[in-house]
Amino acid sequence: MAMHAERSAALHELTSAPIQHAFNPYEDNGGTILAIAGKDFSVIAGDTRQSQGYSIQTRYARKVWQLTDRAVLATNGFAADGNNFVKKVKQRLEWYEHAHHKQMPLKSIARMIQTILYGKRFFPYYVYNILGGIEEDGTGAVYSYDPVGTYERESCRAAGAAQSILQPFLDNQIYFKNQTPEPGAEPFIPGNLPLSTVLALVVDSFTSATERHIEVGDGLEVYVVMKKGRPTDDLVGEGKLAPGMAVEELDALGEGDGEKTFLVTRSLKRD
């Protein structure tokens, strides 16, 4: 008994010794992501900088991923978790396709992502996810998550380093918060903005975040998913994009139901 008391006293002394940090399995790799849903399209964007503290690790690391012909996922937070999370999601999507001979619908991907995230509730993926794409009814959709899987469908969402800069801007521009219609004018309805306006908002969001946040910059990748049959001339048409921007249509991953995904790229300031 005496021995035991002695030992626990010694142990207490040792464990209360100067701060000895355990290994920290997490890191914040900066960057920011953003998605906005339209009536028949969805826009998912992210910058390409990956950083650690004040150091830029690389000027190009992917944060936005094409999952299916109608779903695009943006990840932000701890890059290693993000990459491995996407790997797992893609694997599950492949298994689904083998089992059902079709690609998983957007709302099912949304639920599956919740399940995977919550599966690691007590050792979470330190990742903020935003899923964008086209629902089975043809509407543009955005789903946003917290690291342990809480999710909801929204019209727009910003996450990551510059969330606090971008979300209020989107609230104002997409949800028309703090705006009042002219007397007698139609009331504002969120989620109806034309693609050109949405793209301009996305670009302005990222150029602004780049100015004000040290972890944002280098490059911008914007994925645009369009409902099947929707005209594409407001994106690919001559002079539709601002100077310095490029657009390419991505190949269909599955049978090609008619939805189209485009990748719009642009450089951001590197300082």
């Binding site: 399995p25 997490y26 890191e27 790799n29 990956q50 650690q52 690790q57 690389t58 000027r59 190009y60 690391a61 701890f78 890059a79 290693a80 990459n83 491995n84």
Partner: peptide, 8 residues
């Protein structure tokens, strides 16, 4: 050691 990867 964190499994963080990148190329440049």
């Amino acid at each position: 050691l964190l499994g963080t990867t990148y190329s440049s």
